[in-house]
Design a protein around this nucleic acid. Structure first.
Length: 631
RNA sequence: GCCCUCGUAGCUCAGCAGGAUAGAGCAAGUCAUUCCUAACGACUAGGUCGGAGGUUCAAUUCCUCUCGAGGGUGCCA
């Protein structure tokens, strides 16, 4: 990869410079060397600012340092060096290098940007588990879930591209009070449809009746509740349980379908009820077991200052006695976790005085189970309203012996929808919740995914419905897809017969199909060293060359981008990249004709078109957005 | 009150492990099209990077304070 090549060359040059005592007081160096693209193309292609950073330690002027480094720098094979501004070392890459970089794209094709096997071997063998959406099976998925789904799924794909072993999971929260509430709601919804009670009698604290009626259609529930449909049986506990189970599976199916429709797939659907409540060892389920595990954990408890003897050597606040206590304790007949000892602001209840376990208790058991299944890096994508749970779960993980850094939390901020120019906040109370399937029907999968991934997770976002609905130039998704379709179109035209406009006669296609295949699969995959000649002022204007150079630099950026974006867990970087790349491609397309040029120039440009097509398609595929051949 | 995010062009957002003139798209205005898809392109205009201090050769980027928006702060999930 370009940046690591350059980084190595600089490291060597700096070592040599130090050995030659050219770098003043700097005696050794092994820091990360930042290799970045020049913001201004007039400066060059690649900029390294290391001389500025070393200035202080070396006690030399940055420009002096830059000169010393350059003296020992061997980048002749890559390009020309210049020192500019306060001490930047700029590299203008030569065409041989750019062509060889482009050849890599043609060689790797659909895998270009994916971390290679060799690179993978160097990485720490982490196993990631990314948990996202995890909605209760008590309703449809709204846009907030949609954003979690798209960001979580895109991140999982990105990590996979970056070479990590990653698995994704949906935690089905199917135990406890919300399932109780669901059963109640489902029972009442059926009773209403059967005419046993009126809508006015629907429980006030139940889930919205409309959403219940959406899934509990008579033809569905009648089969399940055969024999329980009379007023008396339907009112009973058995009917309630059956109705609850039915509603649960219907909502789960609905959620699965919606997620599948936006190409969000999970490796596992993890049921809280089945895995944590039902599986028992020695008559104890995993939640009870985790409480015992925590009970066995000892925490240092400090008695401070009270028995302190005043004296010359006494320091206020230093504990006299430190003794060990269990990480859980009983108080007011509830079971508490000493979360405060693990960084939380206060202790947390695990088992309520009524005997039920809290959500936290289940969540701790769940996370323990994730580790037990062999995952060592857990990423949870949560709605920002779950922010308050962070310290509790982190503390518990630490208490049971894991490094809290093994858990990463990504909080997704709310989405509001802008419709007819007016921003509407999503509110259950106001009935302004927008569901994923509704929006999907309006804008389609590609636009929905793109818009939801296109901003940082911890920014609140506004979904501009009108913009996403536009099937034209204003819509960035189409702008990017159009770039791909345009490149595809060139290839179609190359192998299609042409009509001569002058005399309306048919002319042969420029390439036979197999000729084009050979070009793409053989010629473009070999380094022919003719870009130097073809991409010169002999065949191109200064403006054209500038665009071409920018395009190539952008294309070969993908592998580094994948790694950087994965490292900071930022799939939106890919969408930002795609917008830039598409823009450069369109610009290139407008400035450079392919068909009708002399063969050598045509092939050179075609090589760029083909490479652009590959890179755009791959980047889109990271986001699970389609790359149409035709629009 | 305390904790966590966010505040960059009229709108939606990039840029920020400090670096050269802060960038895109939309909206506004001008131009361009006999030719591979105009779902394109070129150009113009639009910014005290919320505000005030501090650290630094260098701050939109780091630190402190402050203002504004959102979220959290249950024996809810």
């Amino acid at each position: 990869m370009l940046s690591s090549k350059i980084r190595n060359l600089f490291q060597i040059a700096i070592n040599k410079a130090i050995a030659a005592s050219d770098l003043g007081e700097l005696k050794s160096f092994s820091d990360y060397i930042d290799v970045e693209r020049c913001k201004n193309p007039d400066h060059g292609d690649i900029a390294v600012s290391i001389a500025l950073k070393l200035s202080r330690e070396a006690k030399l002027a940055p420009v002096k340092i830059a000169q010393s480094i350059v003296k020992h720098l061997d980048v002749v094979a890559i390009g020309d060096i210049s020192i500019a501004g306060p001490g930047f070392i700029n590299i203008r890459l030569n065409w041989d290098f750019l062509e060889s970089a482009l050849v890599e794209i043609h060689q790797e094709k659909d895998n270009y940007g994916r971390l290679s096997k060799e690179a993978r071997a160097d990485m720490e063998p982490h196993r990631f588990l990314i948990e996202y959406v995890s909605a209760n099976p008590t309703g449809n998925l709204h846009l907030g879930h949609g954003r979690q789904a798209v960001l979580g799924n895109s991140l999982a794909r990105l990590l996979d591209w970056a070479g990590y072993d990653v698995s994704s999971e949906f935690y089905i929260n199917d135990a406890g009070v919300q399932i109780e509430k669901l059963s109640l709601s489902a029972q009442a919804a059926i009773q209403i449809q059967e005419g046993h009670i009126t809508k006015e009698n629907y429980p006030v604290d139940a889930y919205p009746l409309d959403s219940m009626l959406d899934v509990l259609k008579p033809e569905i529930y009648k089969a399940k509740l055969k024999g329980y449909l009379d007023a008396a049986s339907l009112a009973g506990d058995q009917a309630k349980e059956i109705a609850g189970k039915l509603a649960k599976s219907l909502f789960l199916d609905l959620q699965k379908k919606v997620l599948a429709d936006i190409e969000v797939h999970f490796d596992t659907w993890y049921s809280e009820n089945e895995n944590l409540h039902q599986v028992k060892i020695n008559d104890k389920n995993k939640i009870e077991l985790i409480c015992e595990t925590l009970k066995a954990v000892k925490v240092k408890q400090e008695d401070v200052t009270e028995h302190h003897e005043a004296g010359e050597n006494a320091e206020i606040g230093v504990p006299l006695h430190a003794h060990e206590v269990s990480a859980v304790y009983e108080e007011d007949s509830a079971l508490w976790f000493r979360a405060k000892s693990f960084g939380d602001e206060r202790d947390r209840v695990l088992r309520k005085s009524q005997g039920m376990f809290t959500y936290l208790a289940g969540d701790i058991a769940y996370h323990k189970d994730k580790f037990d299944r062999g995952f060592d890096k857990l990423i949870n994508v949560w709605g920002s309203d779950h922010h308050g749970q962070e310290l509790g779960i982190r503390g518990a993980i630490q208490a049971i012996g894991y490094n809290p850094d093994q858990l990463e939390l990504i909080f997704i901020q709310l989405v509001s929808v802008k419709e007819d120019g007016v921003e509407k906040k999503m509110s259950k109370r106001k009935g302004t919740i927008v569901n994923v399937d509704e929006l999907l029907a309006e804008v389609g999968k590609d636009a929905l995914r793109f818009f939801l991934v296109d901003s940082q997770a911890n920014n609140r976002m506004v979904f501009d419905l009108a913009l996403a609905q536009k099937h034209d130039k204003d819509n960035p998704v189409y702008y990017i897809q159009y770039a791909h379709a345009r490149s595809a179109s060139i290839f179609r035209n190359l192998v299609s017969p042409r009509i001569n406009i002058v005399d309306n006669t048919e002319e042969a296609a420029i390439f036979e199909v197999d000729e084009l295949e050979r070009l793409l699969n053989e010629e473009f995959k070999t380094f022919s060293a003719n870009f130097k000649k073809l991409f010169s002022d002999e065949y191109h204007s200064e403006e054209q060359l500038k665009t071409i150079r920018s395009l190539v630099l952008e294309l070969i950026e993908l592998p580094k981008l994948v790694i950087d974006a994965a490292d900071i867990r930022a799939p939106y970087k890919i969408s930002v990249y795609l917008k830039n790349l598409a823009s450069l491609f369109h610009q290139f397309y407008n400035e450079n004709r392919i068909i009708g040029e002399n063969e050598e120039v045509m092939k050179a440009r075609l090589s760029l078109v083909a490479a652009s097509k590959i890179v755009i398609k791959n980047a889109l595929s990271i986001l699970a957005i389609s790359a149409p051949e035709k629009m």
